[in-house]
Design a protein around this nucleic acid. Structure first.
Lengths: 216, 216
DNA sequence: ATTTGAGGTGAACAAATGAGCACTACTTTT
DNA sequence: AAAAGTAGTGCTCATTTGTTCACCTCAAAT
């Protein structure tokens, strides 16, 4: 059953309903939808809604005005927090940067930016954000998919959460420099600290100054 | 101006509308409100709505069915503007504190603002942020001092992290609505779920759509 | 004693709104 | 070539729903 397959038109309609709801706090009427798409007949609109209902995207109350409900089938997630499968590599794609800063490694696909109110925090302008992959920092409240905000200028001391580069990989860990030995300590009992032997292959990208997470 | 002063009856009606919206995704009609309170005439209901409108709690569209909008004056911060016209950036005001442990009263002190690139964030413009106090959500990665970003319009389903009001206090918990019973579930083994008995004293402030944490 | 305001009834009415039918046009599938 | 699916028009029709009026009750204020 390929119920999920929507036509372009149907998707447009669905998007409009979603947007309308968001902006107004109540669903649109058939005629309001029609007006948006230059559909003069309510019947034409209704058939779009029927199609969307049949495909499981909407729920419509009979004879009730504005009785449209969007069924959120995508997220039916349980309440628990995922201690998911062991994901050894903490690869962090770059998602954006705030200001023109020192360019960091490879993939520079900017997806957006985060700007901090200067009155709220005296950040340096070179900060940028990376998306976290892996679960080695969950005990520090940093989960997969979170954005970490990184200050490349800040000096790091033992105990700070940092972003480090080891060879060609970038990882988030707690920094520890004790007796000339540098260790990167995960915040997850399932992982072991990383001991840096060859300092040539290691560098500190920056200090983590913030964590941002979007739900849903 | 004692505009804010509501009668018991008016407050009941307001709570019902809020709850109805939450549960159904669209506002109630006059008759649906009337049925709930055993008010046989729509005129009686309408005068409640008019009173609530006059006092600034509602917004009603003339001649539109279900055209009720709740104006969130409890958390509304007139001093902040949601859109930074220069940079086309969405600004999210930071309003007060929410208790994640034992609920505390939300103070209305604005502590700053977060600015988010709109392309990065498809949330509604009514979002605001609260600072978390307490540790009842640490297993969900929400710690004391974190800012939670709240969407007041979003409808919540079981499993969502929400901000709820219980009597005069505000708290962050996982929402669960099962078999007509609403429970607020902490994400910390040391706390017990809160069972909602009196629905009149409970309302959902909004859904948590983001978490932001500053280190140092 | 009178006024005022909150809360309510019952009925009537107009506007808003969803439901449905017959028919057209176009594209894709069979 | 025929059938099926999508998209739409114009038009009814029945409900749903908001608006309004005259009138009532009760408690608090003047």
């Amino acid at each position: 059953m390929d119920k999920k397959q929507l036509t372009d038109r149907q998707e447009e309609v669905l998007n409009f309903i979603q947007q309308f709801l968001q902006e107004n706090g109540y669903p649109p009427t058939l005629r309001e939808i029609g007006k948006r798409f230059d559909i003069s007949s309510t019947f034409g609109v209704k058939r779009h809604l029927d199609a969307l209902t049949k495909k499981g995207y909407l729920n419509i109350l009979s004879n009730a005005s504005r009785g449209i409900t969007i069924t959120r089938n995508e997220f039916e997630s349980p309440t628990t927090i995922n201690i998911d499968e062991v994901n050894n590599i903490n690869k962090i794609p770059i998602v954006g940067r705030v200001a023109a800063g020192s360019p960091i490694t490879a993939e520079e696909n900017i997806e957006g930016s985060i700007v901090i109110d200067p009155g709220f925090l005296k950040k340096d302008a070179d900060s940028f954000a990376l998306k976290v992959k892996g679960d080695s920092m969950i005990e520090a409240g940093i989960f997969e998919g979170d954005l970490v905000i990184i200050s490349p200028k800040a000096t790091s001391v033992s105990g700070d959460i940092i972003v480090a580069r080891i060879e060609d990989e970038v990882t988030v860990k707690v920094y520890e420099n004790r007796n000339q030995q540098i260790r990167l300590i995960p915040q997850n009992k399932m992982y072991e600290p990383i001991v840096i032997k060859n300092k040539n292959e290691f560098s500190i990208v920056g200090k983590v100054t913030g964590v941002l997470r979007w739900l849903n």
